[in-house]
Structures are given as C-alpha cells and as structure tokens.
Amino acid sequence: MRSAFRHILLTAGAVAVAATAAFAQSADTYPNAPIKLVLPLGAGGATDNLARVSSGPVETKFGQPIVIENRPGAGGSLASAVVAQSEPNGQTLLFANFATHAVTPTLFTNLSYDPVKDFKPVTLIASQPHFVLVNPDLGINTLAELIDYAKKNPGKLNFASAGVGSPLHLAAEYFKIKAGVDLVHVPYKSSAPALLDLIAGRVQVFFDNVSTALPHVQAGKLKALAITSSKRSPLAPEIPTVAEAGLQDFETYGWWGVAAPAKTPPAVIAKLNAAYVEALKSPEVSSKLASQGYDVIASTPEEFEAYIGKEITKWAPVIKAANLSPTN
C-alpha cells in the first residue's frame, strides 16, 4: 500500500509540472496559439471537407494550425455548448450550420447555452441549394406538374427525408406549406438509403443537395424538376429555379459559417473575418468549392448575423408545422 501511495504522489507531481506549462495570451498578437474549430458533425463527411478546404489558407496566413475537433450529436448542440462555454479569445471557434443556428433555437427549448446570444458570427462561408428530385417513372416533368399531381392526389406521393430536422427534411416540409400540397413523410436516418428508395421508386419526391444528387440526375436515374436557389447553378444550368418553374418565394439552402463565443473582442472577429474572406475569395478555394456545388458567400459578420435572424424566423413555423416535438 505504501508503494501505491508513492505512485499516486508521482502522478500528482507530473500533473502539477504539466499545469504550470500553461501560458497566457493577449488579443493584440492574435492568434499566438493553434485555433480549435469545433464541428457539429463527424470526421470525413462533406462538412468536414468544407471546413478543411476553407480553413487551409487561414492557417497559412496566421502561421498557426487550425485543429478541427469533431463533436457530432444532439443537432449540433454538443459542439455549440463547447464553444459557447469556452474562453472568448478567438482560440475556439464553431463551424456553425443550419442545424446549430436555424433549427436548434426553435427545436431545443432547454439548452445549457443560448444558441443565438452566446455567439458572435464571423462569416457565412457558403451555402448549397437543393434539387427537387422525382423518380423519372412518375412521368412528371416540371414542378408545376408535380404540384398539380399532388393536389389532385392528396396523400398519395411519398417524400423522403434524411435526418429529422435537417435542411433536406425541412425543405420538403416548407414546400408542402408553400405549394399547399399533401405529401407523406418517409423518414430516413441518412441520405444514401433515401436515394436508393427514390431511384427504385418506393418514394417519389426528395429534396437533396445539388452535389450529391447531380450524378444521379446526369445519369438519368433521377429527374431534377428545379433548384431551390434564386439563380441557376453553373453545374447544371439547364435546371430552372423554383421561381422560374412557377413557385414564388421559395428558397432553401444548407449553409455553413464560422462563429465565435459572444464576448470575443471585435478586433479578433475582424481579423478572423478578413482571413476567411481572403481565403474564400482565392481562386483555388472558390473554384474547388464551386465544383462541389457550393455558392461561396464570404459575408461580413453583420450580414451573417442578419442571415441567422432571418433563417430562425423563416424555419420556426415550418418546424411547428412538421410536428417536431420541442425537446430538451
């Protein structure tokens, strides 16, 4: 038992030595240490890729690595909580998205942090519109035909969703409201099985990201009736926008940006914004992201803040209409 005691002492000693090595930092010389960018999703996905591509030049400019920490779960609220509760010195940032800043404020009523007030937006990096996809065997060729068919046959068509409360799910729910049609929701946990069932014709309608859906559209397995942005996509200029196809006032995007803890000094926010905007405007990054279906935005902090506000108001009624239970 005496040796056990000694062992604990040794451990404690090592810990104490390590603790003194912590060092302080000031806002003027920001960033003087590696920056932690917390992602609300797992490693290896599209969001992970977007974060890495857009942060690459920022790393070079700052001469400090940006370490990506994946914290998936609970609609992004685990990642948000980490950042909201971290030191507001610009060393810990959140890779904000539709889930953390458009859905969570309405869907999660009992959070340990305030999803809006605890953050200071840095920049809206990019957004990606959706395709309104149908199975080609349905014989529907335009958005107007789809709305017409759905109105004549209420509750006959199935639409797929990938992830409850995801942009792919809520875009379709929003479409139901705006077009005044009744489609039956078939929930999927991820996009892959939803795509398979759509190709096989077991579900008929699906709102999916342009980048994922495009190869299937080009191969003729799926039909894209419209794109949900205000402009046509350079990747598929033949697909009309929803407005051109006859449904006004209907735009949906998945979007991604960077946010910092609320009390981060404005000087740090400005420095971060400048670095990210410069990175996103570089031909290398912007062309890479454009080829993956993103619209590069690179907004100011104020524009991003306003955008978040608009998104929350836009989606709150959709979330209620979709019968999603407000949860803790």
Binding site: G75, V164, H185, P187, Y188, K189, L324, S325, T327
Partner: peptide, 9 residues
C-alpha cells in the same frame, strides 16, 4: 435518442 420522425427524445 431522438426519434427519427418527430425528434422526440
């Protein structure tokens, strides 16, 4: 976990 259709915990 969250219900896949209604997000109920």
């Amino acid at each position: 976990g969250m219900d896949l259709e209604t997000a109920a915990p």
